[in-house]
């Protein structure tokens, strides 16, 4: 019974002649999904990210201990000790639990940067690319100014001005991360704006706003998505770096970068305190990279559809 339902759904999604807007859209997404699925490396990346999201969402259920619970008697236990699968840190807290809760922090940072930087870049880039002239010149110079700021120095400046904390660190990262997206969106817009289909919609009397939002954005979005997933590794590392410097998440918050930092002192004798969060960062960054590569292949409009 359930099998035929799945079969029908699949047939509905694979149809050649969609009968409604929803069916058309879902059918396209399904085809893209199948494309992505055939790329083994991309699926590995996808699973890693999926695991990250699940871990972050179900942290309280998955973590064996309270990430803040200290037990000085059990400090610096090696991995595979009873009850401490990945060992414990210098305050006796379970590293595994802190990694799991750290996943939410990482995801939080990723989410904040993703919704701010690319969107900001899209707005600036498409406006500059489409309108041209003085608007283009001014917006691009603005982009250049922000591009010139080094992330860490800006973060330090923010911390000095506004105090330390994750949100400020994220703000610093986002403010320096958006310029490349603006450049990317502008380049795409310049290519697209001379197309016949843009000429056609202009000939219907469409306003620049309608053209930019309805016709240019849908075409820029794929390259931005790809770029963001590939940048994700760098963003996580930067956040970790800020955490390492004590500028991001403040103790006792579990954040992978901060965890690496606090484990520095023991790195020779109690290597697991720094290495475990380091591995976590490595795996998640790799996951984003693999997924980004796979998405680029799937979303590239020039791909031959044989």
């Amino acid at each position: 019974m359930a099998e035929t339902n799945v079969k029908n759904l699949r047939k509905w999604l694979e149809t050649d002649t969609p009968q409604s807007r929803t069916q058309a859209k879902l059918s396209q997404l399904f085809t893209s999904w199948l494309d992505l699925k055939s790329n083994k490396l991309a699926m590995i990346g996808f699973s890693v990210i999926f695991a990250l999201i699940v871990t972050a969402l179900f942290a309280p259920i998955l973590a064996p201990h309270d990430p803040y619970a200290q037990d000085l008697a059990k400090r610096l236990q090696p991995p595979l000790t009873e009850g401490y699968f990945l060992g414990s840190d210098e305050l006796g807290r379970d590293i595994l639990s802190r990694l799991i809760y750290g996943a939410s922090t990482t995801l939080y940072i990723v989410f904040l940067v993703t919704i701010s930087a690319p969107i900001m870049g899209l707005l600036v880039g498409t406006a500059a690319g489409y309108i041209g002239g003085w608007t283009d010149a001014i917006l691009m110079r603005l982009t250049d100014i922000f591009l010139a700021f080094p992330k860490l120095i800006l973060a330090l400046a923010f911390v000095a001005a506004l105090g330390a904390g994750i949100e400020n660190a994220v703000l610093a990262i986002a403010l320096t991360a958006w310029p490349p997206y603006a450049r990317l969106a502008r380049a795409e817009t310049i290519t697209i704006r001379n197309s016949d289909f843009i000429a056609a919609i202009k000939l219907q009397g469409a306003s620049p706003l309608r053209i930019i939002t309805g016709h240019i954005w849908p075409l820029c979005i794929s390259s931005l998505i790809v770029r963001v997933t590939l940048d994700m590794a760098g963003i996580i590392l930067t956040a970790a770096g800020l955490g390492f410097l004590g500028l991001g998440a403040q103790p006792p918050l579990a954040e992978w970068g901060a965890m690496i930092s606090s484990g520095r002192k023991f790195i020779l004798d109690y290597w697991w305190v720094s290495t475990m969060p380091g591995l976590a960062i490595f795996i998640v960054s790799l996951g984003f990279n693999l997924l980004g590569d796979g998405l680029r292949d799937v979303l590239d409009p020039r791909r031959q559809k044989l």
Partner: peptide
């Protein structure tokens, strides 16, 4: 006044359905 363009592969927006193209 309306125009029909030369290249059928370039005159329709690649991400819009026929329905969107005609309803817009």
């Amino acid at each position: 006044v309306q125009m029909v363009f030369q290249d059928p592969y370039a005159s329709l927006h690649p991400r819009h359905t026929v329905d969107r193209c005609l309803s817009e």
